[in-house]
Simulated scan of single mutants.
Amino acid sequence: MCAGTLFVAMALVLFGQAGLLTGGTAGAAFLLHYATGIGLGQGFFLLNLPFYGFAWKQMGGEFTVKTFAAVLLLSVLTELAPRFVSIQALHPAFAAIFGGLMLGTGCLFLARHRASLGGATVISLYLQERRGWRAGKVQLAIDCTVLLAALFVVEPSRVGWSILGAGVMGGFLWINHRPGRYVGS
């Protein structure tokens, strides 16, 4: 879980330094950060708070505790990382592609250990389990909504690069994630 969260944190650092964002709750935290200046980690932690009670009731205690731990760790890492990592030259295309791969890898690590990064993933998994809606499609709808909202906050070219990053992440997960395969404890 720590490795997965570290991969996601590094991806978010790349996205942040390139002025990009992603979908889901992390994307909403980027929007909050870009619009208000609140720290990315702080915003991410706050946006996830309403989902823990729901996750506990619908997804169980183990999933919720692991998710809370991952969200807390990611929030701390994204606040601290800029003090330790600074990239002097970063093209948005590289940030989108490499960041998307790192996001996908980190999320895959977390999924294999029955954890998530909260918010949108909790809703997606719940709707898949209870309503039969494909989690990937629900997540895609949420991601698209966040990225469309970004057009009001971030310049369109940055939104375009962000869409590339989300597509890379989604494609990576589509190819590599098979529920029930390589599940850890």
Rank of each mutant, 00 (worst) to 15 (best):
146 V>D: 02
116 S>C: 11
145 T>C: 04
139 Q>T: 07
120 A>C: 03
108 L>A: 04
114 R>W: 05
95 A>W: 03
142 I>G: 01
134 R>G: 13
146 V>P: 01
96 A>R: 03
91 H>Q: 12
95 A>V: 00
119 G>I: 02
97 I>W: 06
102 M>P: 10
92 P>Q: 04
130 R>A: 12
132 G>S: 12
141 A>Y: 15
150 A>I: 07
139 Q>A: 08
140 L>V: 14
131 R>D: 11
151 L>K: 14
130 R>T: 12
136 G>L: 10
134 R>D: 15
118 G>A: 08
147 L>C: 09
141 A>R: 13
120 A>S: 06
145 T>A: 09
116 S>L: 05
99 G>P: 00
117 L>Y: 11
108 L>D: 02
127 L>T: 09
107 C>G: 05
92 P>C: 02
111 A>C: 10
113 H>M: 12
106 G>T: 11
128 Q>T: 10
126 Y>C: 14
92 P>A: 04
137 K>E: 13
129 E>R: 09
115 A>S: 13
129 E>W: 06
130 R>Y: 04
120 A>R: 01
141 A>S: 15
119 G>C: 02
101 L>C: 13
152 F>L: 13
100 G>P: 05
99 G>C: 00
128 Q>E: 15
133 W>H: 08
141 A>W: 14
127 L>H: 05
144 C>V: 15
125 L>K: 06
125 L>P: 08
116 S>R: 04
123 I>H: 00
147 L>V: 11
149 A>H: 03
100 G>F: 07
94 F>E: 00
117 L>Q: 13
135 A>T: 12
151 L>P: 09
131 R>W: 13
91 H>I: 03
135 A>H: 11
94 F>V: 09
101 L>G: 12
95 A>Q: 05
